[in-house]
Design a protein around this nucleic acid. Structure first.
Lengths: 148, 148
DNA sequence: CCATTATTGGAATAAAATATACTATTCTTT
DNA sequence: AAAGAATAGTATATTTTATTCCAATAATGG
Protein backbone atom coordinates (compact mmCIF):
# COMPACT_ATOMS: atom_id res chain seq x y z
CA UNK A 1 0.00 0.00 0.00
CA UNK A 2 2.61 2.53 1.08
CA UNK A 3 6.20 3.19 0.01
CA UNK A 4 9.10 2.27 2.28
CA UNK A 5 9.53 5.96 3.02
CA UNK A 6 6.03 6.12 4.47
CA UNK A 7 6.36 2.85 6.36
CA UNK A 8 9.59 4.00 8.00
CA UNK A 9 8.11 7.44 8.66
CA UNK A 10 5.14 5.92 10.45
CA UNK A 11 7.22 3.51 12.49
CA UNK A 12 9.85 6.11 13.38
CA UNK A 13 7.25 8.62 14.48
CA UNK A 14 5.47 6.06 16.62
CA UNK A 15 8.72 5.11 18.28
CA UNK A 16 9.71 8.71 18.94
CA UNK A 17 6.27 9.49 20.36
CA UNK A 18 6.58 6.47 22.59
CA UNK A 19 10.14 6.82 23.85
CA UNK A 20 11.36 10.34 23.16
CA UNK A 21 10.90 13.24 25.59
CA UNK A 22 12.49 16.68 25.75
CA UNK A 23 15.15 15.43 28.16
CA UNK A 24 15.47 11.91 26.77
CA UNK A 25 15.94 12.55 23.11
CA UNK A 26 16.54 9.74 20.66
CA UNK A 27 19.41 9.53 18.19
CA UNK A 28 19.10 8.40 14.60
CA UNK A 29 21.03 5.28 15.58
CA UNK A 30 18.59 4.32 18.28
CA UNK A 31 15.59 4.99 16.10
CA UNK A 32 16.89 3.04 13.11
CA UNK A 33 17.75 0.14 15.37
CA UNK A 34 14.41 0.17 17.12
CA UNK A 35 12.31 0.14 13.99
CA UNK A 36 14.71 -1.95 11.91
CA UNK A 37 15.32 0.52 9.10
CA UNK A 38 18.45 1.60 7.18
CA UNK A 39 20.13 4.33 9.20
CA UNK A 40 20.96 6.86 6.49
CA UNK A 41 17.61 6.53 4.87
CA UNK A 42 15.94 7.02 8.22
CA UNK A 43 17.96 10.21 8.72
CA UNK A 44 16.61 11.50 5.42
CA UNK A 45 13.05 10.75 6.40
CA UNK A 46 13.43 12.32 9.83
CA UNK A 47 14.74 15.40 8.05
CA UNK A 48 11.38 15.70 6.33
CA UNK A 49 9.37 15.13 9.46
CA UNK A 50 11.33 17.66 11.52
CA UNK A 51 11.00 20.37 8.90
CA UNK A 52 9.88 23.40 10.90
CA UNK A 53 9.43 21.07 13.90
CA UNK A 54 5.86 20.57 12.82
CA UNK A 55 5.57 16.84 13.55
CA UNK A 56 8.83 15.82 15.17
CA UNK A 57 11.15 18.12 17.11
CA UNK A 58 14.93 17.88 17.15
CA UNK A 59 18.06 19.56 18.46
CA UNK A 60 21.67 19.04 17.48
CA UNK A 61 24.79 18.63 19.54
CA UNK A 62 25.46 16.63 22.67
CA UNK A 63 22.32 15.17 24.17
CA UNK A 64 20.57 16.22 21.03
CA UNK A 65 18.20 14.01 19.11
CA UNK A 66 14.55 13.60 18.27
CA UNK A 67 11.44 13.87 20.43
CA UNK A 68 7.85 15.01 20.22
CA UNK A 69 5.86 17.57 22.12
CA UNK A 70 2.62 16.59 23.81
CA UNK A 71 0.86 18.80 21.32
CA UNK A 72 2.38 17.05 18.30
CA UNK A 73 1.45 13.66 19.68
CA UNK A 74 -2.19 14.69 19.50
CA UNK A 75 -1.97 15.12 15.75
CA UNK A 76 -3.78 12.57 13.57
CA UNK A 77 -1.63 9.89 11.96
CA UNK A 78 -2.46 11.38 8.60
CA UNK A 79 -0.08 14.30 9.11
CA UNK A 80 2.75 11.82 8.63
CA UNK A 81 1.40 10.72 5.27
CA UNK A 82 0.96 14.34 4.43
CA UNK A 83 4.54 15.20 5.33
CA UNK A 84 6.03 12.48 3.13
CA UNK A 85 3.59 13.28 0.32
CA UNK A 86 1.74 9.99 0.28
CA UNK A 87 -1.52 11.44 1.45
CA UNK A 88 -3.24 10.81 -1.87
CA UNK A 89 -2.91 7.03 -1.73
CA UNK A 90 -5.89 6.97 0.58
CA UNK A 91 -8.25 8.77 -1.78
CA UNK A 92 -6.93 7.49 -5.12
CA UNK A 93 -9.11 5.47 -7.51
CA UNK A 94 -8.31 1.79 -7.15
CA UNK A 95 -8.09 1.42 -10.95
CA UNK A 96 -5.75 4.41 -11.16
CA UNK A 97 -8.19 6.68 -12.98
CA UNK A 98 -7.64 10.39 -12.46
CA UNK A 99 -11.17 11.47 -13.10
CA UNK A 100 -12.92 8.78 -11.13
CA UNK A 101 -15.53 10.47 -8.96
CA UNK A 102 -19.03 10.14 -7.61
CA UNK A 103 -20.45 11.55 -10.86
CA UNK A 104 -18.11 9.73 -13.22
CA UNK A 105 -17.19 6.55 -11.37
CA UNK A 106 -15.12 3.55 -12.38
CA UNK A 107 -16.74 0.11 -12.12
CA UNK A 108 -15.20 -0.49 -8.69
CA UNK A 109 -15.99 2.93 -7.27
CA UNK A 110 -19.30 2.23 -5.54
CA UNK A 111 -17.96 -0.85 -3.80
CA UNK A 112 -14.56 0.58 -2.96
CA UNK A 113 -15.70 3.96 -1.69
CA UNK A 114 -16.89 2.53 1.59
CA UNK A 115 -13.53 0.94 2.24
CA UNK A 116 -11.77 4.12 1.25
CA UNK A 117 -13.88 6.09 3.69
CA UNK A 118 -12.93 3.79 6.54
CA UNK A 119 -9.29 3.99 5.56
CA UNK A 120 -9.30 7.77 5.55
CA UNK A 121 -11.17 7.82 8.86
CA UNK A 122 -8.57 5.53 10.40
CA UNK A 123 -5.79 7.96 9.56
CA UNK A 124 -7.83 11.01 10.46
CA UNK A 125 -9.21 9.89 13.80
CA UNK A 126 -6.35 7.97 15.32
CA UNK A 127 -3.65 10.11 16.85
CA UNK A 128 0.08 9.46 16.99
CA UNK A 129 -0.35 9.29 20.76
CA UNK A 130 -2.84 6.46 20.35
CA UNK A 131 -0.37 4.38 18.33
CA UNK A 132 2.39 5.12 20.81
CA UNK A 133 0.20 3.90 23.65
CA UNK A 134 -0.66 0.76 21.73
CA UNK A 135 3.00 0.08 21.16
CA UNK A 136 3.64 0.27 24.88
CA UNK A 137 1.52 -2.82 25.36
CA UNK A 138 3.66 -5.91 25.76
CA UNK A 139 2.71 -7.93 22.72
CA UNK A 140 2.70 -5.07 20.25
CA UNK A 141 5.77 -4.22 18.20
CA UNK A 142 7.06 -1.98 15.41
CA UNK A 143 10.22 -3.70 14.21
CA UNK A 144 11.05 -6.54 11.89
CA UNK A 145 13.08 -8.76 14.17
CA UNK A 146 13.24 -12.39 13.37
CA UNK A 147 11.07 -14.35 15.85
CA UNK A 148 14.13 -16.15 17.26
CA UNK B 1 -2.33 1.09 -3.80
CA UNK B 2 -1.51 -0.96 -6.88
CA UNK B 3 1.26 -0.72 -9.46
CA UNK B 4 0.57 0.49 -12.99
CA UNK B 5 0.86 -3.09 -14.20
CA UNK B 6 -2.01 -4.12 -11.96
CA UNK B 7 -4.11 -1.09 -12.81
CA UNK B 8 -3.74 -1.76 -16.54
CA UNK B 9 -4.34 -5.47 -16.00
CA UNK B 10 -7.60 -4.78 -14.20
CA UNK B 11 -8.81 -2.24 -16.72
CA UNK B 12 -7.81 -4.35 -19.73
CA UNK B 13 -9.52 -7.42 -18.35
CA UNK B 14 -12.70 -5.52 -17.59
CA UNK B 15 -12.74 -4.13 -21.12
CA UNK B 16 -12.16 -7.51 -22.70
CA UNK B 17 -14.86 -9.09 -20.55
CA UNK B 18 -17.22 -6.35 -21.60
CA UNK B 19 -16.54 -6.12 -25.33
CA UNK B 20 -14.69 -9.23 -26.44
CA UNK B 21 -16.46 -12.38 -27.60
CA UNK B 22 -15.22 -15.46 -29.43
CA UNK B 23 -16.28 -13.95 -32.77
CA UNK B 24 -15.57 -10.33 -31.92
CA UNK B 25 -12.05 -10.48 -30.59
CA UNK B 26 -10.17 -7.37 -29.57
CA UNK B 27 -6.73 -6.36 -30.79
CA UNK B 28 -4.00 -4.92 -28.57
CA UNK B 29 -4.52 -1.62 -30.36
CA UNK B 30 -8.18 -1.45 -29.51
CA UNK B 31 -7.61 -2.42 -25.91
CA UNK B 32 -4.81 0.06 -25.30
CA UNK B 33 -6.89 2.81 -26.85
CA UNK B 34 -10.00 1.91 -24.86
CA UNK B 35 -8.33 1.89 -21.47
CA UNK B 36 -5.82 4.64 -22.25
CA UNK B 37 -2.64 2.66 -21.64
CA UNK B 38 0.72 2.44 -23.45
CA UNK B 39 0.35 -0.12 -26.24
CA UNK B 40 3.58 -2.11 -25.88
CA UNK B 41 3.29 -2.21 -22.13
CA UNK B 42 -0.28 -3.43 -22.47
CA UNK B 43 0.86 -6.19 -24.81
CA UNK B 44 3.33 -7.33 -22.18
CA UNK B 45 0.63 -7.43 -19.52
CA UNK B 46 -1.83 -9.27 -21.76
CA UNK B 47 0.90 -11.82 -22.34
CA UNK B 48 0.83 -12.59 -18.63
CA UNK B 49 -2.94 -12.76 -18.42
CA UNK B 50 -3.31 -15.06 -21.42
CA UNK B 51 -0.73 -17.51 -20.11
CA UNK B 52 -2.42 -20.91 -20.52
CA UNK B 53 -5.64 -19.04 -21.35
CA UNK B 54 -6.52 -19.12 -17.70
CA UNK B 55 -7.96 -15.65 -17.40
CA UNK B 56 -8.00 -14.17 -20.87
CA UNK B 57 -8.15 -16.19 -24.10
CA UNK B 58 -6.47 -15.25 -27.34
CA UNK B 59 -5.91 -16.48 -30.84
CA UNK B 60 -3.47 -15.29 -33.50
CA UNK B 61 -3.87 -14.61 -37.14
CA UNK B 62 -6.54 -12.70 -39.03
CA UNK B 63 -9.54 -11.89 -36.86
CA UNK B 64 -7.44 -12.97 -33.94
CA UNK B 65 -7.27 -11.09 -30.70
CA UNK B 66 -8.36 -11.25 -27.10
CA UNK B 67 -11.63 -12.34 -25.52
CA UNK B 68 -12.96 -14.14 -22.49
CA UNK B 69 -15.05 -17.26 -22.04
CA UNK B 70 -18.22 -17.12 -19.99
CA UNK B 71 -16.50 -19.34 -17.52
CA UNK B 72 -13.52 -17.03 -17.08
CA UNK B 73 -15.80 -14.06 -16.58
CA UNK B 74 -17.18 -15.75 -13.51
CA UNK B 75 -13.76 -15.73 -11.85
CA UNK B 76 -13.25 -13.36 -8.92
CA UNK B 77 -11.37 -10.15 -9.63
CA UNK B 78 -8.61 -11.40 -7.38
CA UNK B 79 -7.32 -13.82 -10.03
CA UNK B 80 -6.04 -10.79 -11.92
CA UNK B 81 -4.02 -9.61 -8.93
CA UNK B 82 -2.81 -13.13 -8.57
CA UNK B 83 -1.70 -13.35 -12.19
CA UNK B 84 0.37 -10.17 -12.02
CA UNK B 85 1.77 -11.12 -8.63
CA UNK B 86 0.25 -8.30 -6.63
CA UNK B 87 -2.00 -10.47 -4.58
CA UNK B 88 -0.12 -9.83 -1.35
CA UNK B 89 -0.81 -6.12 -1.25
CA UNK B 90 -4.25 -6.93 0.13
CA UNK B 91 -3.03 -8.86 3.14
CA UNK B 92 0.19 -6.96 3.87
CA UNK B 93 0.77 -5.15 7.16
CA UNK B 94 0.12 -1.44 6.74
CA UNK B 95 3.39 -0.60 8.51
CA UNK B 96 5.29 -3.02 6.29
CA UNK B 97 6.13 -5.50 9.04
CA UNK B 98 6.69 -9.06 7.88
CA UNK B 99 5.74 -10.75 11.10
CA UNK B 100 2.68 -8.70 11.91
CA UNK B 101 -0.08 -11.12 12.83
CA UNK B 102 -2.96 -11.63 15.18
CA UNK B 103 -0.60 -12.92 17.87
CA UNK B 104 2.19 -10.41 17.30
CA UNK B 105 0.43 -7.35 15.93
CA UNK B 106 1.68 -3.91 15.00
CA UNK B 107 -0.03 -0.93 16.65
CA UNK B 108 -2.33 -0.43 13.66
CA UNK B 109 -3.24 -4.07 13.24
CA UNK B 110 -6.45 -4.23 15.26
CA UNK B 111 -7.90 -1.18 13.59
CA UNK B 112 -6.70 -2.00 10.09
CA UNK B 113 -7.65 -5.66 10.01
CA UNK B 114 -11.33 -4.88 9.53
CA UNK B 115 -10.58 -2.74 6.53
CA UNK B 116 -8.23 -5.37 5.14
CA UNK B 117 -10.94 -7.99 5.48
CA UNK B 118 -13.38 -5.89 3.48
CA UNK B 119 -10.74 -5.24 0.85
CA UNK B 120 -10.01 -8.93 0.42
CA UNK B 121 -13.70 -9.72 0.34
CA UNK B 122 -14.21 -7.14 -2.39
CA UNK B 123 -11.70 -8.86 -4.64
CA UNK B 124 -12.85 -12.35 -3.70
CA UNK B 125 -16.58 -11.91 -4.08
CA UNK B 126 -16.89 -9.61 -7.06
CA UNK B 127 -16.49 -11.32 -10.40
CA UNK B 128 -14.94 -9.95 -13.57
CA UNK B 129 -18.40 -10.30 -15.09
CA UNK B 130 -19.82 -7.99 -12.43
CA UNK B 131 -17.30 -5.28 -13.27
CA UNK B 132 -17.96 -5.71 -16.98
CA UNK B 133 -21.68 -5.28 -16.39
CA UNK B 134 -21.08 -2.17 -14.32
CA UNK B 135 -18.96 -0.73 -17.10
CA UNK B 136 -21.81 -1.21 -19.55
CA UNK B 137 -23.84 1.33 -17.63
CA UNK B 138 -23.76 4.72 -19.29
CA UNK B 139 -22.00 6.82 -16.70
CA UNK B 140 -19.31 4.31 -15.79
CA UNK B 141 -15.92 4.36 -17.48
CA UNK B 142 -12.47 2.74 -17.44
CA UNK B 143 -10.28 5.18 -19.32
CA UNK B 144 -8.47 8.37 -18.53
CA UNK B 145 -9.88 10.67 -21.17
CA UNK B 146 -9.84 14.32 -20.44
CA UNK B 147 -13.39 15.48 -19.61
CA UNK B 148 -13.45 17.77 -22.69
C1' DC C 1 36.06 29.58 22.60
C1' DC C 2 37.43 25.12 21.30
C1' DA C 3 36.40 20.30 20.84
C1' DT C 4 32.92 17.19 20.54
C1' DT C 5 28.53 15.48 19.38
C1' DA C 6 24.69 14.95 16.59
C1' DT C 7 21.46 16.71 13.25
C1' DT C 8 20.98 18.94 8.52
C1' DG C 9 21.57 19.57 3.66
C1' DG C 10 23.04 18.23 -0.61
C1' DA C 11 25.02 15.38 -3.87
C1' DA C 12 25.82 10.93 -5.48
C1' DT C 13 24.62 6.22 -6.35
C1' DA C 14 22.01 1.93 -6.64
C1' DA C 15 18.14 -0.61 -7.59
C1' DA C 16 13.51 -1.30 -9.00
C1' DA C 17 9.43 0.00 -11.54
C1' DT C 18 7.64 1.87 -15.62
C1' DA C 19 7.54 2.71 -20.43
C1' DT C 20 8.80 1.62 -24.98
C1' DA C 21 10.87 -0.50 -29.22
C1' DC C 22 12.27 -4.01 -32.20
C1' DT C 23 12.75 -8.52 -34.22
C1' DA C 24 11.85 -12.95 -35.03
C1' DT C 25 8.53 -16.63 -34.44
C1' DT C 26 4.48 -19.04 -34.38
C1' DC C 27 -0.14 -19.78 -35.16
C1' DT C 28 -4.54 -18.88 -37.84
C1' DT C 29 -7.30 -17.73 -41.40
C1' DT C 30 -8.26 -16.88 -46.25
C1' DA D 1 1.16 -19.87 -49.78
C1' DA D 2 0.36 -15.26 -48.05
C1' DA D 3 -0.93 -12.22 -44.75
C1' DG D 4 -2.64 -10.96 -40.22
C1' DA D 5 -1.91 -10.81 -35.41
C1' DA D 6 -0.45 -12.50 -31.06
C1' DT D 7 3.95 -14.37 -28.70
C1' DA D 8 8.50 -14.40 -26.94
C1' DG D 9 12.63 -12.50 -26.10
C1' DT D 10 15.78 -8.89 -25.85
C1' DA D 11 17.15 -4.38 -25.40
C1' DT D 12 16.86 0.23 -23.81
C1' DA D 13 15.36 4.54 -21.86
C1' DT D 14 13.16 7.00 -18.23
C1' DT D 15 11.44 7.78 -13.76
C1' DT D 16 10.71 6.69 -9.10
C1' DT D 17 12.19 4.68 -5.01
C1' DA D 18 15.71 3.44 -1.96
C1' DT D 19 19.99 4.25 0.02
C1' DT D 20 24.71 6.07 1.11
C1' DC D 21 28.11 9.50 2.10
C1' DC D 22 30.22 13.71 3.29
C1' DA D 23 30.55 18.45 4.36
C1' DA D 24 28.17 21.97 6.94
C1' DT D 25 25.83 23.66 10.80
C1' DA D 26 24.26 24.04 15.48
C1' DA D 27 24.39 22.92 20.48
C1' DT D 28 26.69 21.60 24.54
C1' DG D 29 30.29 21.14 27.97
C1' DG D 30 34.38 22.18 29.75
Amino acid sequence: MFSKTTEYALRATIFIAQKGTADQKLSIDEIAKAIDSPKSFTAKILQILTKDNKVISSTRGPHGGFYMTQQSKKLPVRVILNAVGEDEVLCKCILGLNQCSEEKPCPMHDEYKHIKKKLIKLFEKKTIQYLANETSKEHIFINNEKPF
